[in-house]
């Protein structure tokens, strides 16, 4: 018994270490950037950083659920663009549409996209990577098509719509506020509701989940729908923030989102992932994209740096896992 308590301590330590390490890394990075360019830790820049990270963290939370069920969703960039485009066209045609309705419209578009993907994955059994790759193209094409190949630019959008991203409530930017609310909702959902725990169960061991009477189809459709709804919301926020909707909005953004999850300790093999970790992962990427230009790193280097960090994170995770397994073997006395 005794050595098993040690064993569990070790694993728990490693899990904690990952989050603390991530936090430490973020702080270290911030200090380095600050030393090189004092403009980093100013109120204005931090506000920029947070608003920029808000959309990423909203999407990363949704992606976390998908990854926990052993799935993946590559279509979210396209869903985001489609919802943003449809909303932008609507508000430019009906200038007096209430911003809340615009947000609702965007979410609806996203939910429809998500349900389609959920059905393909759960009912027909297409691999998530292939189904979402196909839908990514479909949604992206539709975005171009509904936009007629044109942009919707700032002057076509009513001020009330643009103010979604710029307004603030109690001194906090609305985008950040929305992200915080979603974070809290997620924290509650995955930790304190039965459905939330069933998502982990399905990803941790699908066969056992079936025996325990968990409806897997329902869970899968649910996570892809949530992911779609969040992408739809993000689409509205994105278009409002950048005050333009284009056919190629957020191309490749799904990769950044998945990267945030992996950095935050979500396992692609399913069953593992914490909201706090994902948030830290998103913040790390936010600091990178905000800070690197400040220290004169070319913006074109960012993708390569991101790629390396992801690869290192993935390999670090597996190496730790292999080490723990080997230790378990060594501990077995013969």
């Amino acid at each position: 018994m005794k050595d098993n308590i040690l064993q569990s301590l070790n694993l728990e330590k490693i899990a904690k270490f990952r989050e603390l390490g991530l936090l430490g890394f973020i702080i270290l990075l911030a200090i380095i950037i600050q030393l090189l360019n004092p403009a980093f830790l100013t109120f204005g820049n931090l506000r920029d950083l947070l608003t920029n990270t808000a959309i990423l963290s909203i999407l990363a939370l949704g992606m976390m659920l998908v990854l926990i069920t052993r799935g993946i969703d590559l279509s979210i960039g396209a869903t985001l663009a489609l919802s943003g485009m449809i909303t932008a066209l609507t508000v430019s045609a009906y200038g007096n549409l209430h911003p809340l309705l615009a947000i609702l419209l965007g979410i609806m578009v996203g939910i429809i996209c998500g349900v389609i993907l959920g059905l393909l994955v759960s009912k027909i059994g297409i691999l998530p990577i292939i189904a979402s790759l196909g839908l990514m193209n479909v949604f992206r094409g539709l975005t171009f098509w509904v936009g007629g190949g044109e942009w919707v630019s700032a002057y076509q959008m009513p001020p009330s719509f643009k103010s979604i991203a710029t307004s603030s409530f109690l001194g906090i930017n609305t985008l950040v506020l929305i992200a915080v609310v979603i974070f809290l909702l997620f924290y509650y959902f995955v930790n304190n509701t039965i459905t939330g725990r069933q998502i982990y169960a399905v990803g941790s061991n699908p066969d056992s989940a079936r025996v325990s009477g968990i409806n897997q189809t329902k869970i899968l459709i649910l996570v892809y729908t949530i992911m779609g709804g969040l992408s739809g919301l993000a689409g509205v926020l994105w278009v409002s923030k950048f005050a333009s909707a284009q056919g190629d909005t957020a191309t490749g953004y799904e990769l950044t989102v998945i990267a945030a999850c992996i950095l935050g300790g979500v396992s692609i093999a399913g069953g593992v992932g914490k909201v706090t970790g994902v948030l830290l992962g998103a913040i790390l990427l936010g600091v990178l994209s905000n800070g690197l230009p400040l220290i004169n790193v070319s913006p074109f280097w960012q993708m390569g740096i991101e790629g390396m960090i992801i690869l290192i994170a993935v390999l670090f995770n597996t190496n730790v896992k292999m080490l723990v397994e080997k230790n378990n073997l060594l501990r077995r006395e013969i």
Binding site: L120, G134, L135, M136, N137, V138, R140, G141, G149
Partner: peptide, 14 residues
């Protein structure tokens, strides 16, 4: 247009 091709290839795949 090229964009419609995207839709077609995506649908073909699915």
């Amino acid at each position: 247009p090229a964009q419609s091709l995207l839709v077609i290839i995506g649908l073909l795949l699915i």
